[in-house]
Write a protein that binds this DNA or RNA. Sequence first.
DNA 1: CGGTATCCGGGAAGATACTG
DNA 2: CAGTATCTTCCCGGATACCG
Lengths: 141, 141
Amino acid sequence: MTRSHQGNLGTGSRPARLAAWQAEGFDPHNCPVRTILDQVTAKWTVLILLEVQEEPKRFNMLLRALPDISRRMLTQGLRDLERHGLLQRTVFDTRPPGVEYALTDLGRALMEPLLALVDWVGAHSKTIFAARERFDGTASG
Amino acid sequence: MTRSHQGNLGTGSRPARLAAWQAEGFDPHNCPVRTILDQVTAKWTVLILLEVQEEPKRFNMLLRALPDISRRMLTQGLRDLERHGLLQRTVFDTRPPGVEYALTDLGRALMEPLLALVDWVGAHSKTIFAARERFDGTASG
DNA sequence: CGGTATCCGGGAAGATACTG
DNA sequence: CAGTATCTTCCCGGATACCG
């Protein structure tokens, strides 16, 4: 398991981006950005971030707000976001104990490009769905 | 901007976004944006889009450019991108037959917010990795 | 309340072989 | 060259039960 080395997907905005990365030793097996991106865009994380963005939330509040998530997956998603420094977990020593999750500064910063993507998809969802149906139609017809 | 939304993830930029969506009947089981977003950010799609963005590519060129992808997954990813209207598949009646994949206008439009996210992650990957190690360290130590 | 541990089924994805 | 078909394996994720 040799996992050490970065210097992969990152800044730079010319067209031949991937080619440039490859020229400087891009290693798809070992690309930190892919790892992070997979996490950030994982099934539940976007929704969790969206929830917490409004205001800090407690575990069961999130469980209720995200109707089809399981305890297990919520815990896991929360841990992962915390691990990446995007969420701050705060335990209150009350009775019964309370735990609050809030965006960190890093998490808040992430919301900008993330919401931009979400908005783009939202704005074009009809077009995309139309393309889907066209594709599925011609495939079967 | 007569963009009538369909009650799900989409346009709108106030803070309590999720709450607003829920108020107007947001259904997490049936959210088009989540479906699309999952596809768009799936394991290989970003890399595929990055590759064809430079210039149209053929199947085996992509296979070679993405060292650790399997035939099966490449085919599937390509089909999916085509299905969503992001990629244009063109067959050349040459011998031996050639097939070329290129971004559509929609696909090109997607690259802007998508690259913005990728760049953000790239720019903050060190911070995030540091957070990871800190988290893992305190967890085990 | 806020989790963790365990079991288990189904789908995702790799390897391989074959086809037009 | 550009895929498809099949087989198998692996791990994601739901359900459930229990702990601090």
